Computed example of a mutant assay.
Amino acid sequence: MSLDVTRAEPLHDARQRLEHSRTSRLAQLQALDETRQATEDHLLAGQKTAMERVLKEIEEAFARIEDGTYGTCLACGKPLPAERLEILPYTRYCVACQRRSA
């Protein structure tokens, strides 16, 4: 099996997880927009802002797949654990770097 095939399989899985995350967030945003018509609420506005931020992070993750940097921590440059990418496919940082930035 060539290296390209081995690398392509995890990226295909990552794309699927990202697509699922994007579809879920878009559906949640639509539901919030429908709810928001009935009531203006700061909590709903906060939820919408958070979902829009995650959608931006998802789009950035797609860009990292395209440029070949997906799966690498943007802070320390180390590979991100597969388990972390399964849980948060759009994550930019390893756990240690995420904690340092928080």
Rank of each mutant, 00 (worst) to 15 (best):
M1Q: 12
M1V: 07
M1W: 01
M1A: 13
M1D: 07
S2H: 12
L3C: 06
D4R: 14
V5S: 15
V5F: 09
V5L: 15
T6S: 14
R7C: 04
R7M: 07
R7F: 00
A8W: 04
A8C: 05
E9P: 00
P10V: 03
L11F: 06
H12F: 08
H12N: 13
D13L: 14
A14S: 09
Q16P: 01
Q16S: 07
Q16E: 06
L18R: 12
L18M: 09
L18G: 08
E19P: 01
H20L: 09
H20V: 05
R22V: 01
T23V: 08
T23S: 14
T23Y: 04
S24P: 02
S24E: 11
R25D: 05
R25Y: 00
R25H: 07
L26R: 15
A27K: 12
Q28P: 03
Q28W: 02
L29N: 04
Q30G: 08
D33T: 08
D33E: 03
E34F: 02
T35G: 13
R36P: 01
R36C: 08
Q37T: 06
Q37P: 01
A38H: 12
A38S: 11
T39D: 06
E40D: 12
E40W: 06
D41C: 11
D41R: 14
H42G: 13
L44M: 10
L44R: 11
A45M: 07
A45K: 13
G46T: 05
Q47F: 02
K48T: 14
T49N: 11
T49G: 11
A50S: 07
M51F: 04
R53Y: 00
R53W: 00
R53S: 11
V54I: 09
L55P: 04
K56R: 15
E57S: 12
E57D: 13
I58F: 00
E59Y: 02
E60G: 14
E60R: 15
A61R: 10
F62H: 07
F62W: 04
A63F: 03
A63K: 14
A63E: 13
A63L: 09
A63C: 05
R64T: 03
R64C: 03
I65F: 01
I65Q: 02
I65G: 02
D67K: 10
G68L: 06
T69F: 00
T69H: 01
T69K: 03
T69S: 12
T69L: 00
Y70Q: 05
G71F: 01
G71P: 03
G71L: 01
A75Q: 10
A75P: 04
A75D: 12
A75R: 11
C76K: 13
G77N: 10
G77V: 07
K78E: 02
P79A: 13
P79I: 08
L80W: 04
L80C: 08
L80N: 07
P81V: 10
A82M: 06
E86C: 12
E86W: 09
L88A: 10
L88H: 09
P89K: 15
P89M: 10
Y93I: 05
C94G: 11
C94K: 10
C94N: 09
C94L: 06
A96I: 08
A96P: 12
R99M: 00
R99I: 00
R99K: 12
A102Q: 14
